[in-house]
Design a protein around this nucleic acid. Structure first.
Length: 437
DNA sequence: TCTGGGGTCCTGTAACCT
DNA sequence: TCTGAGGTTACAGGACCC
């Protein structure tokens, strides 16, 4: 039986549920006067991109990740809204709760999509297709938005099926119809094939999944590397052994920010590194995790990007300690007033705070900063995020999109010292004892 | 046309250890 | 003591996903 809404769902335990134009749909729900109109969600600044767009806007050629300037040229009549992550997260939580009322085997991929393994729910709720129909109706009733659902015997094919049925659709790919369904698709449908790999495959004359499937595995591996070659070959034959994993611990947590315009003032860069370090540390603490490796990312005006990382002797979740390492990594780049577009701070090699080794070394970390951070966390829970910040982040002229405005109290025009830059954190940030990395 | 922000995973290289 | 092989880990960069 061919794939379709009425196809056999025997052996199809996986559902992939994907909200249609999620952020934009939530905005339309909030402002019904937008219904039927082209709506674009995204940053409206000179460097914003589209994060979501209604199908009316997509009809003009607008799609997510497109620079906002281009989107507005393609669709001048579009209504641009800035986006409200808290509202989307709340809506998502309601949807995920609905999924968990069906099965505990729910694996969220992002705010707007999830895999469900419904093998154990059949007796209670019916066949996978019946469950999919029910989910679509409930989400529309309760949340006022539509979704698309793919039903298949593997996660990969379920995901392709939901994409294929968009918007507001349902597609069941029966076990015996998998190969026919897959082989007709373009290579870009394969999970792991983006622009570069697609180009690579095209050069080999491979445009469809069927052509990849009929290419010898060693040829693919020579062209794409052993891992990607084997991965794509397996997927092209519908082989995907992955199961639904309800909760995978995070492997890294980080923050990055693109400046409104390029920045060459080191003082602005360091203040931004401090802000991102504090934000990353707060998220580590709320996740109950410590980081072993701190990395920074620097993107220059021409979009070239560097990353640098250092592994710590003592894992931490303290903003000041992360900042200390981040600023040392930045120093080591030896940049002389380079034009910088973005900086980021990331915590990698996470481990549960509860399992962290007790630090008994001589010169162990001072507790001052950690106590200050946990007090700030308490204040943030009570008064809102950002209620307590380092003094250097309170300065109203320290907006990183307004580089070079402020003057240090020591009279230096920027954060340089000794012709390079101050090794010390900005004034008001240093604890009684130096922190130890 | 001019590229966000949150991530994961893979690959190549270098350093280090045995 | 020197050298090389092989394994492991850290780091940097890049591709990819939503």
């Amino acid at each position: 039986m061919p794939a379709g809404p009425d196809a056999s769902d025997a052996g199809c335990r996986f559902l992939h549920v994907d909200m249609d134009a999620f952020f934009a749909s939530v905005e339309v729900r909030r402002r019904p006067e937008l219904r039927g109109k082209p709506v674009i969600v995204g940053g409206d600044g000179n460097r914003g991109v589209v994060t979501s767009a209604t199908y009316e806007a997509r009809a003009c050629g607008v799609h997510s990740a497109m620079p906002m300037g281009r989107a507005k040229r393609l669709c001048p009549q579009a209504i641009v809204v800035p986006g409200d992550m808290r509202l989307y997260a709340e809506t998502s939580a309601g949807i995920m709760a609905l999924f968990r009322s069906i099965t505990p085997l729910v694996e969220p991929l992002s705010l707007d999509e999830a895999f469900l393994d419904v093998a154990g729910a059949r007796r209670r709720l019916g066949s996978p297709r019946e469950i999919a129909v029910w989910i679509r109706a409930r989400i529309e009733d309760e949340q006022g938005i539509t979704c698309s659902v793919g039903v298949a015997s593997t996660k990969f094919v379920a995901k392709l099926a939901s994409t294929h049925s968009k918007p507001d659709g349902l597609l069941v790919v029966p076990v015996e119809g998998v190969i026919r369904f897959l082989h007709a698709l373009p290579v870009s449908a394969l999970w792991g094939v983006g622009a570069k790999t697609e180009e690579h495959l095209t050069q080999l004359g491979l445009r469809s999944v069927g052509q990849v499937a009929h290419t010898p595995l060693p040829t693919l591996q020579r062209a794409l590397g052993p891992a990607l070659g084997a991965h794509l070959y397996a997927l092209s034959w519908g082989r995907d052994e992955r199961v639904v994993v309800p909760h995978e611990p995070e492997k890294s947590i980080g923050s990055e920010e693109t400046f409104g315009s390029d920045v060459d003032d080191p003082a602005v860069i360091y203040r931004e590194l401090l802000r991102l370090s504090e934000r990353t540390a707060a998220r580590l603490r709320s996740a109950g995790a410590l980081t072993r490796t701190v990395s920074i990312k620097v993107r220059f005006h021409d979009f070239t990007t560097l990353t640098r990382a250092r592994t710590l002797r003592i894992p931490t979740d303290v903003g000041q300690e992360i900042f200390e390492v981040a600023s040392q990594l930045y120093d080591a780049l030896g940049l002389e007033r380079a034009r910088i577009r973005l900086v980021g701070v990331r915590a990698e090699g996470l481990l549960p705070a509860a399992e962290a080794p007790v630090q008994l070394l001589l010169g162990a970390r001072e507790h001052g900063w950690r106590d200050a951070d946990t007090a700030a966390d308490r204040a943030a829970r009570r008064f809102g995020a950002g209620a307590v910040r380092p003094a250097t982040l309170l300065d109203p002229v320290s907006d990183p999109t307004r580089p070079g405005r402020e003057r240090r109290r020591d009279g230096h025009r920027d954060g340089h010292r000794d012709g390079h830059r101050a090794k010390a954190p900005p004034e008001g940030m240093r604890p009684a004892g130096d922190s130890e990395t």
